[in-house]
Design a protein around this nucleic acid. Structure first.
Lengths: 355, 355
DNA sequence: TTGAAAGCGCTACCAG
DNA sequence: CTGGTAGCGCTTTCAA
């Protein structure tokens, strides 16, 4: 418990006032070279660093931002977070992370605190800004109470939402075209001769899912291909969900030549389910995905998937927030082009085509 | 920018002193029921919540802990973190996460801030305690300067290190037996008839690697099996490293019947490398791992691996820290029993044995 | 360019 | 049980 030196001791030992020390601490404007040198020498001597808490108290900003997401264990979110954190730290901001585990039933965890509770906590801690993604925001019907909370919060500090724009929500949005790339995937599959193409994974009532599903339906229609209800099998976003979705398809005997999974985990689960029935991917059915995660180019078979450039999304979000903290910002629609990553699971690399 | 109400306004409107309001805020001890009711009513009316910053300023604790780890993108760390966060939040603590990206060359990122810098920052922010894992601590030769920094920090706030105990470091340690389970894996493989068993992945000079390597060597020796230098191929911890390690083994024509990978990612990479040469796992070679990550029971083939119960590790760490914050704690050696998860990649489930 | 002094919102100690 | 008051360590006017 070594006694921390404070600004008064630095001032005294430097032979100047605390005001001057404070000025030095904040960039050294309007300080004579002589004072500056003296103060810096003493600061150096004591390895003094000002208390962030006291600074926050006096200046009303904490140089801290809050990030609220459902599950850092999910590669999509961890990639996003890493990017956010990187930029934040680089700009002198710390990051408080809160995982809501919303919908994380797959983890068998009871939700200890509501999203609103977390936001409350961040506000008490006087974070300078907040980035929110996933959870209730992704519901097609976001609870009005939640939106109200966000709006209220946004009145005092900038709130950036990574996700689909919501009508009566006044926060800043970083919106990417979720359906983007799906059409090119459908195209790619049909070019390989697939006609009966299904869609698996994701949840009913979740924006991300409905957007992609819509894009899939439209793409199919524009190519004159039918989509019957039995070709779509939703559930959730985890690997086990992909497994069970594929099981249901096979159990009911739905004949498909290819399926599009909502992300790589779902695809992996689906592939595994097929293997367990002695089927081969892509020979018996192609399995591709809409959202590339970290590892999928090493899977067996290597996944054909869409690189949604999620790290770019993270960067944009934090830059928008930092911009808003200093001045004002505006909503942003990300013009990203999802990259089609062609690999084995669609068949082409293995020389497999239909007909 | 709605003006935040403060404790004075609450006091005034309740007709009591700030002291009384403060007491109510802190549990309502030594407050008459009458005052309590009055104050609570006003608090309710304004939806008042006290400023965590002011509280920290006055009371010297922030109800915040800092977590320092190399890469949240790594499933091992994210699982650990999630568990830490869950308990922390439950006890009213927020968590500041810092990813050092130490050794994260695989991500192509320059290290923006040193680990010491992050610790500095946490200290400025007056976190009540810190959990550190990975990075320089894992080096067999941890830099003396780093240890000094940690020791100094530990003098003012509890520092819990998740990892191997270090001689002259006075922080609290949560140590698990890294070699544990490796012997049982070697045993399992030999029981299936494998004699030439290799080891891949991990980095020279990193404790985790050397511990497991040692356990592997000892287990092999105790079974009368040789370990020649060409049976061991280190590199790093990412999937691509597993791929290249296996390539080197195959290129040089080392004959192995099985390899033990240091974690699931390495195993996945190795399996993929074999597939690319038309080899079959486990028929041509068994591939198993020492550290189970999220998804591996869905891989093709399903991985035989060791469940090190990393979530349990996280729970212990945070409990130890919280204990230390309130009172004092002691080092902890975790008596965990790594679970051998038997699946396909070792061969037994597929009916494959040597000889 | 410098210093004095008034807060920031809360806790903690001391009287009563 | 209650209220008064002195800080906590820094920023920020306002004068000088």
């Amino acid at each position: 418990m070594d006694k921390q030196v404070n600004i008064y001791q630095i001032a005294k030992e430097s032979g100047v006032s605390v005001s001057t020390v404070s000025r030095v601490l904040n960039g050294g404007m309007h300080v004579s070279q002589r004072s500056l040198d003296k103060v810096n020498k003493v600061i150096e001597k004591y390895q003094y660093t000002p208390s962030a808490v006291a600074r926050a108290m006096a200046s009303h900003y904490t140089k801290t931002i809050g990030v609220l997401m459902p599950d850092i264990t999910n590669p999509y979110f961890s990639a996003l977070f890493l990017e956010i954190e990187r930029y934040a730290l680089n700009w002198g901001y710390s990051v408080i992370l809160c995982n809501t585990l919303y919908g994380g039933s797959s983890h068998g965890v009871e939700n200890l605190m509501s999203e609103i509770g977390y936001l409350q906590m961040m506000k008490e801690r006087m974070v300078d800004g907040v980035i929110v993604t996933g959870g209730q925001l992704d519901l097609v019907d976001t609870p009005a109470e939640y939106i109200t909370t966000l709006n209220k919060l946004h009145k005092s500090i900038p709130v950036v939402i990574v996700g689909e724009r919501i009508e009566n929500c006044e926060c800043l949005f970083v919106n990417r075209n979720l359906g983007g790339g799906v059409a090119s995937m459908v195209c790619h599959l049909t070019a390989l001769g697939n006609r009966r193409i299904g869609f698996i994974g994701g949840q009913e009532g979740v924006r991300q899912t409905s957007e992609r599903l819509k894009a899939y339906r439209e793409a199919m229609e524009s190519l004159g291909l039918d989509v019957t209800p039995d070709m779509v099998e939703l559930s959730d976003y985890y690997t086990a969900d992909g497994y069970s979705a594929m099981e249901r398809i096979l159990d009911r005997g739905t004949r498909l030549q290819a399926v599009i999974a909502i992300n790589d985990r779902i695809a992996l689960g689906a592939i595994r389910a097929m293997c367990d029935r002695g089927m081969h991917v892509p020979k018996d059915m192609a399995v591709v995905s809409c959202d590339k995660f970290y590892d999928s180019e090493f899977y067996v078979p290597r996944l054909t998937t869409l690189d949604q450039q999620n790290d770019y999304l993270g960067r944009i979000s934090i830059m928008l927030l930092l911009g808003a903290i200093a001045g004002k910002g505006e909503d942003l629609d990300i013009k990203h082009t999802p990259q089609l990553v062609i690999n084995e699971s669609c068949g082409v690399k293995l020389g497999i085509r239909r007909e």
